[in-house]
Design a protein around this nucleic acid. Sequence first.
DNA 1: TTTATGGAAAACGTTACGTCA
DNA 2: ATTGACGTAACGTTTTCCATA
Length: 208
Amino acid sequence: MASLELTMSVPGFSSYPSLPSSVRDLDMNQVPSGQGPDQEEILEDEEDSSNGSGGAPRKKLRLTKEQSRLLEESFRQHHTLNPRQKEALALQLKLRPRQVEVWFQNRRARSKLKQTEMECEYLKRWFGSLTEQNRRLQREVEELRAMKVGPPTVMSPHTCEPLPASTLTMCPCCERVTTTATITVPTQTKVSAAANTALSSEVATPAL
DNA sequence: TTTATGGAAAACGTTACGTCA
DNA sequence: ATTGACGTAACGTTTTCCATA
């Protein structure tokens, strides 16, 4: 079985499979951009903001730098919290467990968003590279067609007579180059074999 | 063993607030 | 002082997972 192995280099990415290292190694724990004024104690009148859908306008607090730092640190260790961890962290940060929970939810969402953006970028590049590859191969096919080289004569080892030549055709439906050969078996049973050599699509696809 | 059910947690989508240019 | 963009805390809903009957 003939398979054509093509290697491609995606600009800006060293190699796949799976995700390129530049994508894999990115620290998803980094706060996306993130700055902010020195928040001293804009905190908490605990009780009132525990509202509970009662129609009270929700108060939005800003976390202090220290709180953010601790939350980030905790997030680096595990992206989800069990109730115990949540409680402990809330205690440590002087926040309500619900706030810690919400922060982790949002943080996971930001991580995922960033990851998705990077994957999207990667796929765009990969698509561009494949398109270019496809163009090259099609040009190559055209050139081969234009050459109109006569088929090589292959002698049968059994009869010592010339075998019918294989033909190189383009499959109209999938646009793959197809090699078709008629094989003469000694028992005079004729077998038609079609070897589908997918020139254009035998590109190893990365597992994303 | 398989299926139905219910609760908890996570994911998702959206809103509202604070900040900055 | 106003406005629009942006980041993010908070919330409601949907989906997923798991234990139990």
